[in-house]
Computed example of a mutant assay.
Amino acid sequence: MADNSKTASEPRPPFSDWEAQAALQSRLEADLFAINKATLFDALVFTGVTTIIVTFDGYGDSGQIEDVEVKAGDDNIAMPGAMIAFAKTVWGQSEPERSTVTIATAVENLAYDVLERTHGGWENNDGAYGEVIFDVAKREITLDYNERYTASENYMHSF
């Protein structure tokens, strides 16, 4: 009787170039997300902002940020105009693209990043809506996500 079970010593097929690049990209994106998040929260503490609420909505293959609410305690305030360092990945490059952006741009980029990391395609078909909440005291970004879908129920009766 032949033993067809695999052993731990059998070689695995090598990663394709694309898989290796995708793994590198994922690691770099995670690292940059943490750095960009820390940079943003450091700036928000300095400006007195306590919370930012980004409202998004998407459907029919299109999605966008609908509103951005900036708070200092219970009071609505204007988005600070300060500039901060921000880094983005570029496919095929091991070094990020670095730039200086407004706090508003950094908030928008991180909000879209949170959506894509957790619910890629959130804007497709029936889409999704919700809020991305930046809590400065907790240094936390929370995604409140609502997915839409069309349901269909069929009943067939023969008598």
Rank of each mutant, 00 (worst) to 15 (best):
F46R: 12
N36M: 04
G63F: 04
Y112H: 15
A20S: 14
S158T: 10
V136R: 03
I52P: 02
L28A: 04
A22R: 07
A2T: 14
G81Q: 10
E66S: 13
K6F: 15
V90E: 13
M83G: 06
S62T: 08
T118Q: 13
L40D: 06
T51S: 12
A2I: 09
S94F: 07
S9R: 07
S62R: 13
P13Q: 05
H157D: 06
N154Y: 15
E10I: 10
P14I: 01
Y129W: 13
D17G: 14
V136T: 11
R139T: 12
A23T: 02
G81L: 09
S26M: 04
E153I: 05
A8W: 03
A72Y: 02
V54G: 08
A8T: 10
S152G: 04
Y149A: 11
M79Q: 07
N76E: 14
M1F: 07
D17M: 01
F86C: 04
S26D: 10
H157M: 11
F134H: 06
A85Y: 05
F159T: 09
H157Q: 10
P13H: 00
G121V: 00
A72F: 02
A38I: 02
G73H: 04
R139Q: 14
E69N: 08
L40N: 05
A22V: 01
V90N: 10
S5Q: 08
V132P: 03
D126P: 02
A104S: 12
V70T: 15
R139D: 14
L32A: 07
E153S: 13
A43F: 01
G127L: 00
E19S: 02
F33T: 07
R27I: 05
E116N: 10
V68N: 10
D57T: 05
Q21S: 06
E153G: 05
A106M: 01
D126M: 14
I52T: 06
T7L: 04
K88N: 15
D42I: 03
V70D: 08
D126H: 07
V101P: 02
H119I: 06
G58H: 02
F46E: 15
P13D: 00
I84N: 11
I141H: 05
A85D: 13
